[in-house]
Nucleic acid binder design. Structure first.
Length: 293
DNA sequence: CTGATTTGACCGCT
DNA sequence: AGCGGTCAAATCAG
């Protein structure tokens, strides 16, 4: 089936490009509304000018100063990808090491700087900055820089890619259409993409657009994770599984706060999906953890 | 002892 | 010149 092949292509691409745990990439069926032809075109176009940074095929912005760090305080100016979110949770499933703290002008609290623990042993370049912006309740603005390339997954759930069976235990991660986002939010940083082929593929599978199917994941039935710019929420639908869902950190209607990406999506159409999946990554990890308790 | 955190210094950018 | 991101020595914790 052509559509399936396209999706698999996209999934393979996402494995190499998106910031996802390997297990995630291997086992998830990723269905989003991005023109996969555009993706491959992008890859082709970028081949000559693409730097392989941290294992990502990601072209570096033209204004990026890619200086080699050889002195104290010298730093590589950012970069190809950042993701900012406001949340009351700091834990995202990864192991970080704090490497700095700074008073920020006009900021009530100090900003904390973290790098991935596996920076040296695995060369993972992921960093994040945590800035507390609220006291009661405590809220943090977390800015992620670069993708994890390390194998640092805490009890990553086994999500089966092949099983496209809506009848068994399934959860759906639903992504809101970019087009809707653009319509509803003037000035949204997210561009819209055509997604005829994706929709074709999805409809052939009996799915609506922008759904990510996760099967054989030990979660209550009818659990839906929804991404909804500018917020994202986790909610259970139907059955009264609230206790299960909220056993960890999340309430059935958990609001993660807004997510904002500062990436040039014209480079890699999958990046928006990447952003969203990156944020779900830790949700899913936490759910998996709560399951294993 | 080893790894994580703290904190002042360093330095590029605006 | 000031700000912000990073470095690395000193310190802390297990």
């Amino acid at each position: 089936m052509k559509a399936i092949q396209k999706l698999i292509q996209g999934q393979e691409w996402s494995q190499n490009t998106l910031w996802l745990p390997e297990n995630f990439g291997n086992n998830v069926s990723f269905m989003s509304n991005y023109n996969i032809n555009q993706v491959s075109q992008t890859l082709t176009n970028n081949t000559s000018s693409t730097n392989r940074v941290d294992g990502n095929r990601r072209s570096i912005a033209t204004n990026m100063v890619n200086k080699v760090k050889n002195k104290r305080g010298c730093y590589i100016r950012k970069r190809s990808w950042t993701s900012t979110q406001v949340t009351s949770l700091i834990d995202d499933g990864y192991v970080w090491r704090k490497y700095g703290q700074k008073e920020i002008t006009k900021a009530k609290h100090k900003r904390n700087y973290f790098r991935c623990t596996h920076k040296f042993d695995q060369g993972c370049q992921a960093t994040k900055q945590v800035q507390q912006i609220d006291d009661e309740p405590p809220k943090y603005k977390i800015t992620y820089n670069k993708h994890h390339t390390c194998k640092n997954y805490l009890s990553t759930p086994q999500i089966i890619f092949d099983s496209i069976n809506l009848e068994d235990t399934s959860i759906l991660i639903s992504f809101k259409s970019n087009k809707l986002i653009d319509k509803e939010q003037v000035g949204s940083p997210f561009p819209s993409y055509t997604h005829e082929e994706s929709n074709e593929a999805l409809s052939s599978l009996g799915l609506r657009d922008n759904q990510l199917l996760l099967s054989e994941f030990r979660l209550p039935h009818n659990l839906t994770i929804m991404s909804d710019q500018p917020g994202a929420s986790l909610m259970s639908t139907g059955l009264e599984n609230e206790d299960v869902v909220s056993k960890g950190v999340y309430s059935p209607n958990f609001e993660m706060g807004y997510i904002h990406e500062t990436i040039d999506y014209s480079e890699n159409p999958f990046d928006l999906a990447h952003c969203e999946l990156a944020n779900f990554n830790w949700i899913i990890q936490d759910l998996a953890r709560s399951q294993s308790i």
